[in-house]
Design a binder for these strands. Structure first.
Lengths: 200, 200
DNA sequence: CCTACCGATCGGTAGG
DNA sequence: CCTACCGATCGGTAGG
């Protein structure tokens, strides 16, 4: 057929590959700017064929955003559980958050831009998870202030600024560059401590 | 023309009010997620009426994004011109950038989310201005490293992180809160110096 | 300012 | 997997 040339690899299509193509398309032009035809084109098929592997465009976004938001929260819990002081916990929490933006940039861009486009139940759950994450980070900063290790007078400004700083990684980090994702993540974790006014 | 007199229940509609309504709508649900009907509804009219005051939805976005990007660059130039050292210039440049995000949050959100949706000529110009701004900020950091005032080994990571940190202000700053836009902007300018490794 | 309407495009279904 | 097609919605125009 004449249309099998446009897309990517011709292998078997399944839910995972549809999700993969949606990640790329949604990240590039946004959820509302993407058509299912564009997603299908990445796989070398026509739009209706996608519906053998997924329920709806809305549900595709929902799965991407919720899975990502849940992973962000789990990463945070792991970082806090692994470390013992507010200072080390903040460093670990920011490191893992920045790292995720380097290793999963499409998911990060989509959550940031399109989470509010979800239908209310999923939207509420996603925003609650992200809010919980922000409050968790802020709580670590407040704990560090309480025990005298952090000097900041503005824990909320620090946490908002730190988290958004990590978002930048998803926009410019290139795995092929000369710095690894792990190195970038540690550098940004260091910045978080400086912003919190960590005393040496 | 002939219709601008009648004492209707609503004020007169002009290009400025259309732009104002578009700013609110685009910022809330994104350019591709907004319909001209939603913009019109904010003004209490029907969608076709808007076209007496504007050319197209695309041009509306173009004007918003280009005007904002140009102002960002002018603010930067003014900050650099006013100050004499890399350290003071960086502080002033970040302060004014953060301030703009506090005072013009809708424009900032739209530029961040939808600049890439512009048609190529306008898109190229907008992205060039923003890239120029980022390179300007990075240049100040490099200048401070060169004269020994900044200790960072990663000027690009600092500039990307600092600029994105300022973007956070557009998302949470509330003029009615207890901190003024100017105070928030100065706090974030301080963080920029810390991230750059300013020596005291 | 409005209603009526245009062509285009969208998400999704039917049926093979 | 495809083509054919559905109803809905969109940006924008015509005409008053």
């Amino acid at each position: 057929m004449a249309q099998s040339e446009a897309g990517g690899p011709r292998g078997t299509i399944d839910a995972g590959r549809v999700r993969e193509a949606a990640l790329t398309t949604f990240a590039r032009v946004g959820f509302h700017g993407s058509s299912m035809g564009q997603v299908a084109a990445l796989l070398g098929v026509r739009a209706p064929s996608l519906y053998n592997h997924m329920a709806s465009k809305d549900l595709l976004l929902e799965e991407i955003v919720l899975a990502t938001a849940e992973q962000v929260w789990r990463d945070f819990e792991d970082a806090v559980r692994t470390e013992r002081t507010p200072e080390r916990r903040l460093w670990a929490a920011v490191r893992v958050y920045a790292l995720r933006h380097a290793t999963h940039p499409r998911e990060a861009v989509i959550v940031n831009r399109d989470a509010r486009s979800l239908a209310p139940p999923a939207r509420d759950r996603a925003l609650a998870l992200l809010r919980r994450h922000e409050r968790g980070v802020r709580g670590l900063i407040e704990a560090g202030v309480a025990n005298g290790r952090f000097g900041t007078e503005h824990p909320a400004l620090v946490s908002f600024g730190v988290l958004e700083m990590c978002v930048s990684v998803a926009k410019w980090f290139d795995g092929g560059g000369d710095r690894s994702a792990a190195e970038v993540a540690e550098i940004y974790a260091d910045y978080a401590l400086r912003m919190a006014g960590a005393r040496d």
